[in-house]
Structures are given as C-alpha cells and as structure tokens.
Nucleic acid binder design. Structure first.
Length: 346
DNA sequence: AAGACCTACAACCGCCTGCGT
DNA sequence: CACGCAGGCGGTTGTAGGTCT
C-alpha cells in the first residue's frame, strides 16, 4: 500500500513560482504564520501543494535568508562540518545564519566538491587522494593492488578528467630536474613536478598519466607499519556522535577537522590568507615541515593567489581563485616513503 | 549568429521521523 | 500500541541563463 499523496496532484500547479504566487504566500504567512502547510495554499488562494509552499517559503521567501555568494568563512564552515557529519545538510545549514540546507547542498555539489577535488582531496572522505593511494598500496598484496588501483582510478577518473579537460590543465608528470629547481620549483617533496601549461585535450593521455601515478604510488608505498593505526577518517563519525550529544559540537568539529587537514592554525582567521591555500598546503603528503612549508606559503600567496604567474609558468586557472592552482601542490602528489608521515594524523 | 554545452539554483520526489489520537 | 498525518531531510531532476565553439 503506497503512501497517500500530500495533495491531489491533478489540481496543483508545479514548476517555477511567479511573483504573484510569492506575494500571496508571503502575505498570507505574514498574517497567519506557518501552521499547517496543508491548509496554507487553500487559504492563501494558491493552486500549490502544501509541501511546495513550505519549500518555497523555507528556501526562498523567508525574510531572514541570505541570497548572495557564500563567503570564504561560510565555505570553510561547510567543508569543516561536512568532513565530520557528511551530507547532513540541515545540520550544516543550522550553523550558517541565513542559509538553507538546499543552499548548502547546492553549493557543495556545484562548487565545493570540485574545489576539493581540484585540491587533491577526496570530497567524500576528506582525505588527500595520495592518502587513498597509500592505503591501497599498504593494505593489499601486489596483485590485488593492481586491480584495486584500477577500480580506484575508475572512481575518480571522471571527476579528474572533468577538471583536467574543462580547465585545460596539462599535467606533465616528469622527474624533478637534478638541481636547477632549488629556488624555482614547487617546494614540495613530491617525486614529480606537475606543470600546468595551458591547452591540452588528450584524455587518453591523461588517463595514462593517472595510471602512471597510481603505479608509482604502489611502487613507492610506505612500509605497512608506517601508516597510523588510528585513522581519523574512521573515528570522525564517532567523534561527532559524542559531540552531538552536547550542544557544543562546533568546537568538537574543529578539533576533529584539523586532524585531517593539518595544524589547527590552518583555519585560524589570520588576516587575508585564503583558507583554501592553507588547506592545500597541509594536506597529507604535501605538507613538508620547516622552510619548505614557509616557502610554499610565500609562493602561493605571492605568485599565484595574487593572480601572478609562478616561476614555472603555472597560471591561475580561474579568475581570482586559488582553487585550481592549489592542485599543483597536492594533486597526484605521490607519496614518497616518509612523505605521508611528515604530518602524522594525531 | 546560432547551436551545443555547462553551471547554478530552484523545485520536486520519496523516504523517514515524531507527534497526536 | 497502532495508525495516520505533517513536516523534515537528502537525493535527484528541470531549467534559465551564461559561455564556448
């Protein structure tokens, strides 16, 4: 036995709301409030389903809603919370004044997901792709690794291809030049440089390069005992379960979050630094301590985030954002033996 | 200039949960 | 306790407007 529909579908209008309908609904709610959505359309003179009215009101007409662009701080919050609670959009939206779950969900699906992918972070697990590769490599014997790597490739190949081709990034995986790059090369300790050189559209070639990256990751896999046994991505749910029982969960969330993305200061609001650049430099294998870390900050801020061109010819991909270029630092940043362990996940 | 393609966002759908009877 | 209903939620689809070729 199916569920009784919330309204007779024959008599209700669907699709886009007109300004007249909006006015009717708004003025009715202003006078009578939002009790009993089933009656509201009838009483307000609308040929709409009560549910449709409720959605229109909560997602669009409510006077306390913000309609503009999401700010950096809001995006930060979304990513943080998503890393802990997953797709609990209403929970996330509750932490953002004036934003609805629908807003947050749409923003995540259209922008933030791609942004994270572009930075080499898996938007589902919030782990760097290099971490995933390392996990594959450390948990399986060689014959299995090859198969699983293929499967993993299948999982994010499409997304990567989309990013690579849409944004016209040409990934040229090549060994570090022997010594010439000490001052000019990207200051991360990856086994490869990844150049972003403008137009290049050979998908098959790209797939091959990704495959090469995977096999390289397998070859260079760290010893099994080098990966931390307590995986924050596994425990994050548990953290949240505990945190949820209190009302102070945002604090708990921030605690859990920097486990995955680096030191807590990554998210401190220190002036004009883009939170994205900070995330990107602290992801898994990318983050190298000391001078290299500092130089990378300088590089990102001076040469790239400010709209410049870095010394290797890399260009900012999308006007005004650092998101795609951040991928230069982390995407296919293949794990060398101890690279992954430089910033053990506490 | 026109069609194809892409993006962002509004709206819908169906399931789940909680509450009143 | 069972049932029915309203509201909430997350996933998915539709579409308008912008961009690219």
């Amino acid at each position: 036995m199916g569920r009784i529909p919330c309204c007779e579908k024959d008599n209700v209008k669907r699709g886009q709301w007109t300004p007249e309908e909006d006015n009717k609904l708004s003025s009715y709610i202003a006078q009578h409030g939002t009790r009993n959505w089933r009656l509201i359309p009838k009483n307000a003179g609308l040929q709409r389903c009560g549910k449709s009215c409720r959605l229109r009101w909560t997602n669009y007409l409510r006077p306390d809603l913000k309609h503009g662009q999401f700010t950096d701080a809001e995006e930060q919050t979304i990513v943080k919370l998503h890393s802990v609670v997953g797709n609990r959009w209403s929970l996330i939206a509750a932490q953002l004044a004036g934003r609805t779950d629908n807003d947050v969900k749409n923003h995540w699906n259209t922008k933030l997901k791609k942004k994270l992918s572009g930075m080499g972070i898996d938007p589902v697990t919030h782990k760097p792709f290099s971490h995933l590769m390392a996990e594959i490599a450390t948990t399986l014997a060689p014959p299995q690794v090859a198969h699983l790597a293929e499967a993993a490739l299948g999982c994010f190949k499409d997304e990567m291809l989309h990013l690579l081709t849409k944004n016209r990034i040409d990934f040229q995986i090549q060994p570090h030049p022997p010594s010439t790059s000490t001052t000019t090369a990207a200051p991360h300790a990856s086994a490869y440089n990844i150049n972003i050189n403008g137009k290049h559209d050979e998908k098959e070639d790209t797939i091959e390069k990704i495959k090469l990256g995977i096999s390289r990751a397998i070859q260079e896999r760290p010893h099994d005992n080098m990966l931390p046994s307590n995986k924050p991505w596994d425990s994050s749910t548990a953290n949240f379960a505990g945190a949820c029982s209190t009302t102070a969960f945002p604090a708990s969330i921030s605690g859990g979050y920097h486990h995955q993305y680096g030191p807590p200061s990554s998210f401190a609001n220190d002036g004009n630094r883009s939170p994205w650049s900070q995330i990107s430099i602290c992801t898994g294998s990318t983050c190298n301590a000391g001078d290299q870390h500092v130089r990378l900050h300088e590089k990102l801020e001076g040469g790239i985030i400010n709209g410049g061109e870095d010394s290797e010819g890399g260009k900012e991909i999308r006007n005004g954002t650092s998101s795609m270029f951040a991928s230069d630092c982390v995407l296919w940043d293949l794990p060398s033996d101890h690279d992954l362990m430089k910033y053990p996940i506490v």
